[in-house]
Design a protein around this nucleic acid. Structure first.
Lengths: 155, 155
DNA sequence: TATTGTTATACTCTATAACTATA
DNA sequence: TATAGTTATAGAGTATAACAATA
């Protein structure tokens, strides 16, 4: 009876629910769910990232990322500096205001993360992350895959 | 070490991969991934649905669904008729052309569904659907939950 | 009064293609 | 030649609020 349609639909339903809750949680702070992901990627990147690296890690498009960066830069949350060795590239960093905003956003998102985990045992949460990664891998063309080790960023 | 961030990010990555592959698969047929979901909801609904019922089942907004319906109606894939008993409502149905288009779309999506299932054992696929449903339930406000039994559609 | 759907409106994300500058 | 980023452009989904018609 399972035609294979259930899995994509369940995935879609879960993601959309997450996305909507996130939009609602971050809206009072003037940030969208996708902008939060960008800021989080930057915050956890450690060092400054180029726009291309950022796009890869977010599984997004350089042109899309640029549009988002323009909005975030206008609000003073990110800055774009010249790359130290590559004059073509620009490095993206969180500003001081961006770091403060991200701290508030992280707190605002805590109930969502907690709510998701509360619906699962720790073992189930791990299993779910693993299964999702397998599915994502099966759906992602080799070339677009996000490297697990930062050293492969430029591939 | 798990702050709870991994799960939302894994969910996002898997959904985005699915969405992109779907867009690419359906684009030659002139339909977006979300439009496919609308058509699939209609195709599996059996009887005609009102726009509100459709929006609920797609976990979407009536206003959003209307915008999509306008596009699909212009292409002749769906029709909107007067509701038999409620003069306010309109029932949405697949036209003959819509049914033919959906058959082609379903075939075009087959490799995607198969690819997802191939990455999992049957037991894992079932488990994944179940876990996703639990997570979606935890993230969805009671009022917005999609009824499992069609009889509750008007709640 | 509440509900179905429409309209107007606005914003974000998405992505392609052509372009400049640099590697 | 290939790559990083910009620009122009377009489309799609999202959602809110005000509104008309009907229940």
């Amino acid at each position: 009876m399972t035609t294979g349609h259930e899995l994509p639909m369940a995935l879609r339903a879960a993601y959309l629910a997450l996305h909507r809750r996130s939009e609602a949680a971050f809206a009072p702070l003037g940030v969208t769910a996708d902008q939060f992901v960008l800021l989080a990627t930057l915050a956890r990147g450690g060092h400054a990232l180029t726009q291309r690296q950022l796009a890869r890690r977010m599984a997004s498009d350089p042109s899309t990322v640029r549009a988002m960066l323009v909005l975030l830069e206008r609000r003073g949350l990110v800055g774009r500096d010249a790359h130290p060795t590559d004059a073509r590239a620009r490095t993206v960093v969180l500003t001081a205001a961006g770091k403060r905003a991200f701290a508030r956003l992280w707190a605002a998102g805590e109930p969502i993360r907690a709510g998701m985990l509360a619906a699962l045992t720790p073992g189930e949460a791990d299993a779910l992350v693993g299964l999702l990664a397998r599915v994502a891998g099966a759906l992602t063309p080799e070339a677009d895959r996000v490297p697990l080790t930062p050293s492969e960023d430029d591939a």
